[in-house]
């Protein structure tokens, strides 16, 4: 028994001394082996969504002996911030962030700023006003322009209904940046077609169930509706469900979604959904890495870049 105890003590002492020695060794020895290698920390909300898988894989594909990309994912606000702290500790040269929350990420960005690590905002936008107030600085932003996406949806619908008829909009959560932009882009196009009338525009909070109920009410009020733009695919699928419930022929109303979610793409293939607006995550990921390389080379970059959108029909 006593032997065991002293053995453990000895082991502990050896470990502690070893650790201290290692610290000292570390502080004297300057690492220069990895100079010239650009290390990028890439933070996304999740790797279960193909959107972010595409984005990070395209970034990873650019890796070479002079470029390393570290990918981490979390859907928890606090963990996202901790991952950024870890990136900083790891000594990365730049951080690309797709934030889960446009506000709570700001303290972490300030920490990166203090460590002189440039931060590139990808896709989900950080609240710039809030960031400014708190003194956080972003190197640049890259993502799809939701306004442009709304415009594409508008063009498609106008064409499909021969530039005349009644249309409805299902909006995202009120006040949400993407929701405002998508709706704004769509309305912008509609203004150009005097024969198209927007008969309803209501929020359904990105939610399928809610979209179904809201669309039920819209259809009751406007039985002769020609087209509907849902600001995301969830809501578009809610619209289709509502039509199926009321036994309305699916081809009597044009339905357009947004995001090109798997389920929506399937619905397009089945002919249930007319179109969905696709962002191009691969392009975003690759562009983000290229922007980092420009920033590291001290080339000047714009405040914001947008990747084009595609209409899947």
């Amino acid at each position: 028994m006593n032997n065991k105890k002293s053995l453990l003590k000895a082991l502990l002492i050896i470990i502690v001394i070893g650790l201290i020695g290692y610290f000292v060794y570390q502080s004297f020895l300057k690492k220069d082996s990895d100079s010239g290698v650009v290390k990028i920390g890439f933070l996304v909300p999740t790797l279960e969504n193909p959107f972010f898988v595409d984005m990070t894989e395209s970034a990873k594909n650019l890796e070479n002996e002079k470029l390393k990309v570290f990918i981490q994912a979390s859907q928890d606000e606090l963990k996202q911030n901790q991952i950024i702290e870890n990136f900083i500790a790891q000594g990365v040269d730049a951080i690309c962030i797709v934030p889960i929350n446009s506000e709570s990420i700001i303290p972490a960005i300030i920490k990166a700023n203090n460590a002189n690590i440039p931060v590139i905002n990808v896709d989900n936008k950080i609240n710039l006003e809030s960031a400014k107030n708190q003194g956080a600085v972003l190197a640049t932003y890259i993502g799809s322009d939701n306004f442009e996406g709304g415009q594409s949806a508008g063009e498609y619908i106008a064409e499909s209904i021969n530039e005349q008829g009644k249309v409805a909009i299902l909006e995202g959560v009120s006040g949400n940046d993407a929701a405002i932009k998508r709706k704004g882009g769509f309305e912008d196009v509609m203004k150009r077609y005097p024969n198209i009338q927007i008969v309803a525009s209501q929020a359904a909070d990105w939610n399928r169930q809610k979209a179904k109920d809201v669309f039920d009410a819209i259809m009751t009020a406007n039985p002769d509706l020609d087209a509907v733009f849902a600001a995301n695919d969830e809501m578009a699928l809610g619209v289709i469900a509502a039509m199926k419930n009321k036994r309305i022929a699916l081809d009597s109303i044009i339905v357009v979604g947004f995001d090109a979610a798997d389920e929506a793409i399937k619905a397009v293939e089945l002919g249930e959904l007319n179109a969905t607006i696709a962002q191009q995550p691969k392009l975003m990921g690759a562009e983000a890495v290229r922007l980092v390389l420009s920033i590291v080379k001290k080339e000047s970059v714009k405040d914001s870049y947008s990747t084009p959108l595609k209409v899947i029909k």
Binding site: V16, G18, Y22, A89, Q90
Partner: peptide
């Protein structure tokens, strides 16, 4: 301690006091 040492050996950045 074993965990700390293993991580430290694989990536010395881990052992930085700030980390």
């Amino acid at each position: 301690l074993v965990l700390i040492i293993i991580f430290g050996i694989i990536n010395p950045a881990f052992l930085q006091p700030s980390n």
